[in-house]
């Protein structure tokens, strides 16, 4: 798994300089190092460590939204009251990535650029209209998350481009959101089926619904048919069911050791329905614990949470 060269950058410019000559960035190492140890892919020949680049750290509020530095960890997001309040689905997702250790070491930048179709934070970021800033030695551009992912492990980023931050606009008043994942066990899970719902209510009517499915296609994507089924509705059970069925219908699941396509499709409907219902509950001001997934598999009375 040996990398041939390793440099530790102290500024974004230093990191970009190294990347211009072919180095790959590394922060928490929860994908690159774990993958190399597991024989998935060898470490790149040249690595540039960015974990000491302070300008990439932190979560800050800016006019109209929140900015997540690329080095914001999953644990940072869960600890941020603005993230939990405004972008609850993102907090739901961040709180269930891997294990306690993964969430403490793993960064949002790494999670996004690893571009796994099973990544937890992808669905919420897409539904919240997050925009990624990609910087390289030759310039800066902004890419909507919807346009970032091109396939499993692939993004539109060019070699030499570093994701520096993610900007997420504040949702309209009356918005509630949820990310729900099928969980075979309570920690160390990977999404077999995941669903995101961001629902904005105006009175009793759904003004805007965003629904995305995770691990059900080569990339995480929104499902227009499901959103249409909900938009303009009264958020009734019938509308929620119709939207969930539409999401399942749009899924293209595979059969593998984690589950059959038939099971995954059936679960796509179940999880999407639960995500939408919880988003509606939250939009109406109701409390639902973060992360939502464990509670959505049944209360844990008597069990360890």
């Amino acid at each position: 798994m040996s990398a041939q060269s390793y440099t530790a950058a102290t500024s974004v410019d230093e990191a970009l300089e190294a990347m211009a000559t072919g180095a790959r960035p590394i922060a928490g190492g929860t994908d690159l190092v774990v993958g190399a140890r597991g024989g998935k892919a060898p470490l790149p020949d040249a690595l540039v460590a960015i974990h000491r680049v302070s300008e990439l750290r932190g979560i800050r509020e800016q006019e109209g939204g929140l900015v997540l530095g690329a080095l914001a960890t999953h644990a940072d997001i869960v600890a941020s009251s603005s993230a939990c309040e405004l972008f609850t689905a993102l907090a739901d997702a961040s709180a269930i990535v891997g294990s306690h250790a993964t969430r403490t070491a793993g960064t949002i930048g790494g999670n996004v650029m690893n571009a796994s179709p099973a990544m937890e934070t992808g669905g919420p970021l897409i539904c919240f209209d997050a925009v990624a800033t990609l910087r390289s030695a030759s310039g800066t551009r902004r890419v909507a998350l919807t346009d970032l992912f091109t396939g499993p492990g692939r993004t539109v980023a060019e070699p030499g481009e570093l994701l520096t931050e993610l900007a997420i606009p504040t949702p309209k008043d009356g918005t509630g959101s949820c990310y729900a994942r099928l969980e075979y066990r309570r920690q160390m899970e990977i999404a077999i089926v995941g669903a995101t719902a961001v629902v904005t209510l105006d009175g009793g009517t759904v003004r805007d619904a965003r629904i995305a499915i995770t691990a059900l296609a080569p990339t995480i994507h929104r499902v227009a048919e499901a959103e249409q089924a909900l938009n303009g509705s009264d958020a009734s059970d019938a509308a929620v069911h119709a939207a969930a069925d539409a999401a399942a219908g749009a899924s293209r699941p595979i059969s593998d050791v984690r589950g059959s396509a038939q099971y995954r499709r059936a679960m796509a409907a179940v999880l999407t329905r639960r995500a939408i219902s919880t988003a509606i509950t939250r939009a109406r001001g109701g409390r639902f614990p973060i992360p939502a997934s464990p509670a959505l598999h049944g209360a844990v009375n008597g069990g360890a949470a």
Partner: peptide, 8 residues
């Protein structure tokens, strides 16, 4: 099973 899965 993880520690979190262990019941009383």
């Amino acid at each position: 099973q993880t520690a979190s899965d262990s019941p009383p």
